[in-house]
Simulated assay, not measured.
Amino acid sequence: MTTATTPASHPIYDKLKALNITLPDVAAPAGAYLPFIKTGNLVYLSGHLPKRDGKVITGQLGKNTSTEEGKSAARAVAIDLLGTLQAAAGGDLNRVKRIVKLMSLVNSTADYTEQHLVTNGASELLAEVLGEAGRHARCAFGVAQIPLGACVEIELIAEVE
């Protein structure tokens, strides 16, 4: 785990510290892909899975995982996304101009309809940490399964300086 080393006068890092959030290092990809790609001023982050104590948080919403548990998992994904975004922005989240879009895949039963509430866990954290720059367009899908049985997977597009 890396700790933000940016001076305390930067609101993003002050907010992370206040929330007791330490950003993780970029995780090694679990397949034949890169964790992020930068093209022009846009950074595309690959899908991230929720983890607790280094293990993927599994479950299916509407079956064995509650909306609140899913929302908490989505928040955990947002923390990992911020760690990857920090690396993609040259080690400084202050270079992030805006989160452009979030795409959330929620492992859910056919009759589960609260994917948007699960995804709020990530959206709310990004807005809390990044302020107006953290507000974004998004979509939230219900899917039959996610790799490793994860309850949610989220990818992100951001604009950086």
Rank of each mutant, 00 (worst) to 15 (best):
F141L: 15
A4I: 08
L19S: 06
A32L: 10
Y112R: 05
A87V: 05
V56A: 00
S108E: 11
N20V: 03
T119Q: 03
T39K: 15
T84C: 12
M103S: 14
V129M: 10
A110E: 12
L126R: 01
A89F: 02
N107V: 10
A158T: 05
A27N: 09
P11R: 13
F141E: 09
T119R: 00
G121R: 02
A110G: 10
L49H: 04
Y44D: 08
N120Y: 03
L23T: 00
T3F: 11
K38R: 13
D25E: 14
E153C: 07
T5Q: 15
T2S: 13
E155F: 06
G54L: 09
G70T: 09
V118A: 03
G70K: 09
L42I: 12
G134D: 04
A89V: 07
V118N: 01
L93F: 08
L81E: 03
V129Y: 05
A158G: 08
D111A: 00
K55G: 07
A144N: 12
A76E: 08
K55D: 11
C151M: 03
L82F: 08
G149E: 12
Y13H: 05
P147F: 07
H48L: 09
S46D: 13
S123I: 07
I146K: 03
T109Q: 13
K63V: 09
G47P: 05
L42W: 11
A122C: 07
G91K: 14
E132Q: 11
C151W: 00
T58M: 08
I37T: 12
L126N: 02
A8Q: 15
E159F: 07
G83D: 04
G134N: 01
G90H: 08
G83N: 14
T2N: 15
K97G: 06
N107L: 05
P50M: 04
I157H: 01
L156M: 15
N64D: 15
I57V: 15
I12S: 11
T3V: 14
A110W: 06
E132V: 01
D80M: 10
L82A: 02
A127E: 08
D92T: 13
R135V: 10
K17V: 05
L156E: 06
K71L: 01
L130S: 00
S108V: 10
L45K: 12
I79V: 13
P11L: 12
A27P: 00
I146L: 10
T39W: 05
I157G: 00
K17W: 04
E68Y: 07
G59D: 00
K55Y: 08
P29Y: 07
H10L: 06
V106G: 00
E128K: 13
F36D: 02
T109F: 01
P11T: 07
T58N: 02
Y44A: 04
G70Q: 09
E69H: 13
T22M: 14
Y33I: 02
S123T: 09
K38L: 02
E161I: 15
N94Q: 15
A88Y: 01
L81H: 03
G31I: 08
V26N: 02
V56E: 03
L102G: 04
T65S: 09
I146M: 04
K51E: 13
D111I: 03
N64M: 13
P29H: 10
G83L: 08
A158M: 06
A78I: 14
L19Q: 14
Y13D: 00
D25R: 12
L148T: 14
I37R: 03
L117N: 13
S72W: 11
T65W: 04
G142D: 06
L125Q: 05
A140N: 06
